[in-house]
Computed example of a mutant assay.
Amino acid sequence: MRVLVIGATGYVASRLIPTLLQRGHHVTAGARALERLDRFYWSDSVDRVEVNVLDQTSITNAIDPTIETVIYLVHGMDREDFRAVDRKAAENLVAVLPSTNVQRLVYLSGIVPDIDREALSEHLLSRLEVEETLSQASQTVITLRAAMIIGAGSASFELMSKLTRRLPITVVPYWMRHDVEPISIEDLTLAVEAAMTAAVSSGHYDVGGGHRIAYTDLLDLYAEVAGINRDQLHLPFLPETMVAKVAARITSVNTSTAQSLIESLREDMVAADTRWISELAADRSGSELTSVREAIQRSLTTPDTTVAPSARDPLGRLPGDRH
């Protein structure tokens, strides 16, 4: 299958594209700055195309007549106006698609808690708005909703890792004591690839790793696997904006990104069901997903640099990852 990955310089794409190549797909990597693709070991194995999702002409030029599937991995968490920008970008893509030969669009979103729309965080509301906009396309549109992604280089994993390592005590606000269902980047990439070819109609799927865990317990598990002794201090009154700013300062993560990730923790971020396995990846039914403990262990394992990047564990560090 000939597939265009929009947002090819991001973390998920860095692991997804090798999976697509291994499965025999012909990949075109779409990015605003093509030189940023040079840092990935697979960059010479893909076609490259410049694409600016805020410019309809750019999108039109990027989707050549051979492209059958578009994988949309665009999220603007690193800017203050990300919600408006993401919505406009999605509208541009939908406007362009009728003039292409694209048959399917796969979008990676976030878990949407079962609460009133008005109570959603800005981050999750933005993801939902993009999903709703893309669903207006006449093509088959499959949205995959994921919570925390475990893997070295994942923004949410790196935030948890750096906060645990750099603070002498783990401070947990009461509003953060909710459940989360992480998924390893390896399982997530398999879900995306399955969504490209599954005989299903448009819709969304929660893609969870199968293990629901309290976020406070996840922090303890990370510390245990990493061999770090950390006590937790639970405080009743810490505003999200303050926590995000402190987290950004400590971890060097962009403040908007940190706030987007942290505010998602004020609700349970768990999959509503396991339909993604039975309907998208039936060949995986009965097989084990990567456990949270194993995923953390593999993410923290020092890579063997004598082994070619293509043969290394995708959960571990790879060339091109941002530290």
Score class of each variant (00 low, 15 high):
Met1Val: 11
Gly7Trp: 02
Ser14Arg: 02
Ile17Gly: 01
Gln22Arg: 15
Arg23Lys: 08
His26Asp: 10
Val27Ala: 04
Gly30Trp: 01
Leu37Ile: 04
Asp38His: 10
Phe40Glu: 12
Val46Arg: 03
Pro65Asn: 05
Thr66Arg: 13
Thr66Gly: 10
Tyr72Met: 00
Tyr72Val: 01
Tyr72Gln: 01
Asp78Ile: 06
Glu80Tyr: 15
Phe82Gln: 15
Ala84Trp: 13
Ala90Thr: 13
Asn92Gln: 04
Asn92Lys: 01
Val96Trp: 00
Pro98Arg: 00
Pro98Trp: 02
Ser99Phe: 03
Gln103Thr: 09
Val106Ala: 13
Tyr107Ala: 00
Ser109Lys: 01
Gly110Pro: 02
Ile115Asn: 05
Glu118Gln: 05
Ser121Gln: 07
Glu122Asp: 15
His123Pro: 09
Leu128Arg: 05
Val130Ser: 05
Gln136Asn: 12
Gln139Val: 15
Gln139Ile: 08
Val141Glu: 10
Arg145Glu: 00
Arg145Leu: 00
Ala147Gln: 09
Phe157Asn: 00
Glu158Asn: 06
Lys162His: 12
Thr164Pro: 00
Ile169Ser: 04
Ile169Arg: 11
Ile169Met: 13
Ile169His: 05
Val171Ser: 04
Pro173Val: 13
Asp179Arg: 14
Ser184His: 02
Leu188Gly: 03
Val200Arg: 06
Gly203Met: 11
Tyr205Glu: 01
Gly208Ala: 03
Tyr215Ile: 03
Thr216Ser: 14
Leu219Ala: 11
Leu221Ser: 11
Gln232Ile: 06
Leu233Tyr: 07
Leu235Lys: 05
Met242Asp: 07
Met242Gln: 09
Val243Thr: 10
Ala248Val: 05
Arg249Ala: 15
Ser252Tyr: 01
Glu267Tyr: 09
Asp273Ile: 11
Leu289Glu: 10
Thr290Asp: 12
Ala295Glu: 07
Thr301Trp: 02
Ala308Phe: 09
Ser310Ala: 15
Ala311His: 13
Arg312Cys: 06
Gly316Ile: 01
Gly320Ala: 09
